Amino acid sequence: MTRSDALFEARRPAMTGLAYRMLGSRADAEDVVQDAWLRWRKVETGSVADGAAFLNRVVARLCLDRLKSARARREVYVGEWLPEPLVDEDFDAAPGALDADLSVAFLLALERLTPLERAAFLLHDVFDTPFAEVARTLGRGEAACRQLAARARQHVRAERPRYRPSVDEERSLTAAFLLAAMTGDEMSLRNLLAPDVVWHADGGGKVASTLRPVHGLDKAVRLILGIRKKWPAPEGTTARLARINGQPGIVLAQAGTVFQTIGLELVEGRIAAVYTIRNPDKLARLNA
């Protein structure tokens, strides 16, 4: 392996992480990194003073190009759009430094930014890129990039998880929620869900799901009980605890094929948000 190849492979996780946060899709992120690889192979290594900065610049620009078509697709998306889930089977894994910036709430906050705001914020605040380099990447002045990042920061600050439960608390609440939902235990659901809980679902118009977020304890409980009654879990369904975008969650499968993931956001001992992914396109990687 050449030094050029070694540098690219060393930077691959960071580039994939940047692209995923920009696009909300692991599949698209990997395509972007592959495109970056093809461009990297054409570069004379000696002509690049800072290979890591160059690669981040290429990835960010490729993502900005892709966001133009992605936004058009999401305008006609059926129901609520949620990012493709990142699943870690090791529930007890210690959280990484960037886990808070993988949460679904945080990624949805990024979706509400302009592409340039998102890029400026991620490059500087999440990936510690100096504003001089951010400016070079975005083709804007440093002052303009500082303003972009500042506006983005105001919008997303509140969406970074501030409450960090212990792994034991996460496991206990997640297992209790799974049992209550599968058995239709209304009292337990009411004790587990926060009064202002929000239920999110993404079926992409390909499978049954709610089309808009469901707000409030009473509506969420009725929804869960209604789903259990109308669409009981198929025979042979298995459920396992996992981390979904760095937070506690559940993976549901039938005959080994994942058909749903459920991510939970916990706040002060209650479940504040539920994120269910049912769109088979977004679960394809889990079944590869």
Score class of each variant (00 low, 15 high):
Ala52Phe: 12
Leu55Arg: 10
Lys42Gln: 13
Arg26Lys: 14
Asn56His: 14
Arg57Gln: 10
Val32Asn: 04
Gly24Gln: 11
Trp40Thr: 02
Val33Tyr: 10
Asp65Ser: 14
Leu55Met: 15
Leu62Met: 07
Gly51His: 15
Glu44Pro: 01
Leu62Ala: 04
Arg26Leu: 15
Cys63Asp: 01
Phe54Gly: 07
Val48His: 04
Arg41Ser: 06
Ala27Trp: 12
Arg26His: 14
Thr45Phe: 06
Thr45Val: 09
Ser25Tyr: 04
Arg39Glu: 12
Asp50Met: 10
Leu64Asn: 02
Gln34Leu: 08
Arg39Asn: 09
Trp40Leu: 01
Ala52Met: 10
Cys63Asn: 03
Arg39Asp: 10
Val59Lys: 01
Ser47Asn: 09
Ala52Val: 10
Ala29Trp: 09
Ala52Gly: 13
Arg57Trp: 04
Asn56Glu: 15
Met22Trp: 00
Asn56Cys: 11
Asp31Phe: 00
Trp37Asn: 01
Cys63His: 03
Glu30Cys: 03
Arg61Lys: 14
Glu30Phe: 04
Val58Ser: 08
Leu62Tyr: 00
Gly46Lys: 08
Ala52Leu: 11
Leu62Asn: 00
Arg61Ala: 08
Leu64Asp: 02
Leu62Glu: 04
Val32Pro: 08
Glu30Gln: 10
Val48Ile: 13
Val58Lys: 05
Val48Gln: 02
Ala49Ser: 12
